[in-house]
Nucleic acid binder design. Structure first.
Lengths: 346, 346
DNA sequence: TTGTAAGCGTTATCAT
DNA sequence: ATGATAACGCTTACAA
């Protein structure tokens, strides 16, 4: 029954600054001073008030602060359902990194969903207009993404993880150097003695996909392997099944590749399965690399290019706080695992 | 420059009800009436005000509403980093389902992080006290989870996906019948002609893991296969690598299993890899089932038990709205794919 | 049918 | 050093 009574009490409305003042025997404004300008309050009064605050578990009401400052200290983040056929996204890691970075700056994250870019524009505007969120983090920016221009136009503040290809509008973005990431995978494979290095990526038309494809093309050229790699460029949607089909096609060639650079871990998993079905021992007979370093990659001992997602989160957060503007390109890092560690087969 | 000017304008503070009233030439309270009690306003006035609202893109300020009602209409949700070695969680799907269900009830979701249960209790209390969130959704409830009792004690409202084993405290929970899920996998495999059906699960001591283990044990007994399945119960942490080791151990037996029921997709992937290394064709020489129906399962053609996560989301939401109390058990469903579709080998 | 006034909890400005 | 007052934008009695 004592339990019950305590619960009844706790279930009451949270204490306000007025409650604290009443208990401490001072005015409400003295309580405010203790919090806002402690030096203006006599130490003994301050100590007493602070003790009461602690004891009652007083926390300033966010809604009242938001109203007062016309700012909610809240950032909007869209969660998307995982693409059908895709394995896993790294956006849970991304959101986690953001939330941690936001916590340090006393910023909260609000979740919203939207079926497409146009709907997202609507939703962000509504959330902004209603003061639910001060700003937004956009990601998965397509080459011709509508959102940056639209939000600039509507006056909705945002920062982006990724960037459009248009280059017309100016906004603050953070991106990972996809081109350099894939290039480092090619370098690694060449170093292991591979010459016929295939690429399995998305069809042309996405910024990320195109940059990854160019990373392969450029690196192959830089190593003088254009002839060896001629025709080893396969494209399909981001699905393991589709990637497996592409891999079968490549393996059927007179001169099949000895290594595959996949544009995502999902595609890499498809390639792995195809190679296994083909009777190859992945990591010995054939080398494979993925992209994003998802948990799946670690579990399957798949080499993969890791995006510095915690750094991205901190950079986006600092951009949201207005600490810098413009673009910022971060370097990913190849994580080498069994799938590509061995020297090329002779 | 016209663009610039428009952006300047839009960058201004969002319109308030007073702005609408000014433009419409009515009082602020008439605007309120148009929104709250439209029938009380003359149709022509109403139409005019509504047009202005639309034109200005007016949205009631959430902070002001929250202050007025002492309720933020916001629900807290903890995001956790994925466990090391685990493939993927289904919590991104869960959060998406919740957000969609919340949207329909005009509820927002706020994200927070916490390193452990004790810290989470602190954080939820702080968020509740500050009026940032009215209630919370807990998940991954451990057998002896501290959180339900602590939050009841602190008067922090919540609903849970999952439940403790204690049974002492009473709170509202939704759970999926883990026992029945695993049992349906065993039934399926028996139906395909398997008799030596192994289980690969977590060590004893978690509610979910224990219920899944019991699902296997009970089903095996029900089919009279205790003798065939003696010693085929392997346990390890939720990591593909650990599961592969366990599978090797089972495959080395004089009478190796012809089917594996894994407690999670992560474990199932480990078992798949072990079987492949062992030279077995998964889906022909050996059958494997997982749990959670993650995207990984679909990509690898792994049969898996699917939790009705959208239903869980809606049920939790309706519980949060106070539409029902107590516990509710939902049924999962086995999704049959290539990994377990074929008849047992002779 | 429309307008007036008060209050939600906070912070900032100004007196005392 | 401390206390009174006003304002943020909204809703809801109540008065006109």
């Amino acid at each position: 029954m004592a339990d019950e009574a305590r619960r009844e009490m706790n279930a009451a409305a949270p204490p306000t600054a007025t409650d604290v003042a009443k208990v401490a025997g001072v005015s409400r404004q003295t309580v405010a001073n203790v919090i806002q300008a402690p030096h203006r309050v006599r130490p003994e009064t301050r100590a007493k008030v602070e003790a009461i605050i602690e004891q009652l578990g007083y926390r300033p009401n966010r809604a009242a602060q938001a109203l007062k400052f016309s700012a909610s200290r809240t950032i909007g983040f869209r969660i998307q359902p995982i693409a059908p056929g895709a394995l896993n996204s790294m956006y849970d890691r991304f959101l986690h990194a953001l939330a941690e970075a936001g916590h340090e700056a006393d910023r909260q994250f609000l979740i919203y969903t939207a079926p497409d870019a146009a709907a997202e524009i609507e939703v962000t505007q509504r959330l902004h207009r209603s003061g639910s969120a001060d700003a937004f983090v956009l990601y998965d920016i397509a080459a011709d993404d509508l959102r940056p221009a639209a939000l600039l136009d509507l006056g909705v503040p945002f920062v982006a993880f990724g960037r459009t290809d248009l280059g017309g509008e100016t906004y603050t973005w953070i991106d990972v150097d996809n081109l350099a990431g894939i290039a480092s995978a090619v370098d690694h494979l060449v170093h292991r003695g591979h010459r016929r290095i295939a690429f399995v990526g998305w069809p042309d038309g996405t910024t990320i996909g195109d940059r990854r494809a160019r990373g392969w093309r450029d690196a192959v050229a830089r190593h003088g392997l254009q002839a060896d790699c001629a025709g080893l460029d396969a494209r399909c949607d981001d699905s393991a099944t589709a990637a497996a089909e592409q891999a079968f096609g490549l393996l059927s060639r007179a001169q099949p590749p000895t290594a595959f650079v996949a544009a995502t871990d999902t595609l890499a998993v498809g390639v792995m399965r195809a190679c296994q079905r083909w009777g190859l021992d992945v990591g010995r007979d054939v080398a494979i690399t993925g992209f994003d370093d998802t948990p799946t990659a670690a579990a399957l001992e798949l080499s993969s290019i890791r995006q510095p997602i915690e750094t991205v989160g901190r950079a986006l957060m600092s951009a949201l706080l207005g600490e810098h503007e413009g673009g910022q390109l971060l370097q990913p890092q190849l994580v080498i695992r069994a799938s590509s560690a061995a020297p090329a087969p002779r």
